[in-house]
Design a protein around this nucleic acid. Sequence first.
DNA 1: TACACCTTCCAAAGCGCTTTGAGTATGTGT
DNA 2: ACACATACTCAAAGCGCTTTGGAAGGTGTA
Lengths: 354, 354
Amino acid sequence: MNLKQLAAHLKLSQTTVSRALNGYPEVSEATRRRVLEAANRFNYRPNARAKSLATGRAMAIGHVMPVSAKGEIVNPIFADFIAGASETYSQNNYAILLSVVSDGTEERVYRDFAAQRSVDGVLLHAPQINDHRIELLRSLGLPFLVHGRASGEAGPYSWLDVNNRRAFLRGTEFLVDLGHTRISLVNGHEHLDFAVRRRDGYLRGLRDRGVMIDEALMCSGEMSESYGYQTASEHLGWPDPPTAFLVSSMITANGVARAVHEAGLALGKDVSLVTFDDDLSYFSNRDEEAHFTALRSSVRQAGQKSAEMLMTLIANPTQGPLEELLEADLVIGRSTGPAPALDGVARAAIAQTK
Amino acid sequence: MNLKQLAAHLKLSQTTVSRALNGYPEVSEATRRRVLEAANRFNYRPNARAKSLATGRAMAIGHVMPVSAKGEIVNPIFADFIAGASETYSQNNYAILLSVVSDGTEERVYRDFAAQRSVDGVLLHAPQINDHRIELLRSLGLPFLVHGRASGEAGPYSWLDVNNRRAFLRGTEFLVDLGHTRISLVNGHEHLDFAVRRRDGYLRGLRDRGVMIDEALMCSGEMSESYGYQTASEHLGWPDPPTAFLVSSMITANGVARAVHEAGLALGKDVSLVTFDDDLSYFSNRDEEAHFTALRSSVRQAGQKSAEMLMTLIANPTQGPLEELLEADLVIGRSTGPAPALDGVARAAIAQTK
DNA sequence: TACACCTTCCAAAGCGCTTTGAGTATGTGT
DNA sequence: ACACATACTCAAAGCGCTTTGGAAGGTGTA
């Protein structure tokens, strides 16, 4: 059933039917009711592509799901972000056009989006330092919102981000205040903007508290479970091991916890752990008492808000850039405690004498 | 730049330019080269919606991301599946149209897909027992492929599934052969088809080996980390606790492992664990030696193959139903070992005398 | 009665592409 | 010289919708 048929059946013109359906005022209430009733009965839905072609609006948002090139790692927070965003989209009758692409080859996708006019706006994920995609999207004239920020990007752009620096500053301070001085930073890849900000927060926290910085304790990589495991295993095997870990994701934190257990140590006693917690639905840290002390910020909520901002940008293209900075909550859980009485050096010394 | 402008610039008709670009034979090689070169130079890309309208093909596949209604849990394997599928799609120039929807309200989305002609086919996730969506899609005349199967569905349909029954049969047998007789089944929600098949496999394994079935050991729920933790914590607190766990997902298995550690027990010694492993990219079980003994089947590969099958179905609508059953590998890891010499009853007795 | 002014509806153009059916050169065989 | 393929190219219709610019008919005012 298409508009023509519906109009014929109602013995009305296509114009009138279209106007009745789209809420234009030039249609009498009686006719409108009659049209709506018939449309409903025949389960009429306008052909999305024809409508788009006529209106010039695609009614779709482009999301590019980043898959890191080498490891082929799918970003685990992506699904939750999308789940949040889609709530907003569907309220506005927007669909999601999803494209999966290896890091670095996204440019092509954005160009296609723009040239094919298949989307009205783009959500940019996982921005990097000096991300050239921002400049590209700007030049393509496609409304976009960045989830995160890109340091080093000169021009204005709209973004929503978590205060990563502050979160990791607080996490670090919290650990130092518990007496920890050897704190491993298990960070995400540091070509990603958020990871750099987190490192900054960590360094600032140590400096402010006058704790010596040890480059060896800082590492970065793909935020998978096994990365956390391998890193922590290695660090705990050192003669002068860390007493605490500051970790970039719940999933990686799980790997760290596994290594801690395997080393025969107890989390929250022998070793402390603070992690960033995106509040992933299938990986919740919300037992009666959080099991990991965490800096929590719901990525799902971020998705929802980002989508709202993008909707605003699309509805109002002349609008100046929108910016929103979310703060993460510091949630105290069972994975942290005072640093062990003897620090690593002392323990190592003891170990040697044995 | 649109076709008209491009044609005008080349001093050719739109027809010729269109034919040149789409590889029709009625165009001389010289003209074709000239056209392609110009298209490239102006970065011309046909308007996707106009093209779709003209051809009647949407060049998009609809995916409905299931979000369980109450818990708002996003299916953690979804992203990896999509990542696999999209490889196939992009090779065929198909896009993904993503819709996120709470369990049970998907019908509306499929009806819209069909009426709006916004997709050429649909991938159905997480089929349930007697899934009415299959009947619906069939009646809508939309090509579709089911990831999984739906027992109780009468008519034919195309699907790709893992042999869940066999996988859990093998897992159970493996544990029983190690001497375990009290094996907890930590299953997914049993309104989902795969979960029922897994339970069947588990029961069959116990029966075949003559092990008594204890209903109390079988539980099902949302496959999150905390579900695994809570379940295992509870079971391990029983006077007659299980000595092994058979778990439906890596993520849940992590929760089980957490509970095991917290109870002061050692995985692979005091308690054994076998899990289904979807080979998730960020949750890999592929250390030199797998840390969990697992039934492994890559969901990403499943996505890729599913997409291929769907492409075939779309290209050839008269084709009979396609079916593919994948087998899971049994990978021996460090989470399993012989059942402890004393069984639960004896240990509980000892505990009481203390 | 005449005029202006709503209200309600419509025919037709246009969105950017594909595809049909036909036309114009150019070469080939008789 | 003719008919006849063959190789290119084109104008125009059509995909299903929205939107422009009227038209028809009814109502109120002078």
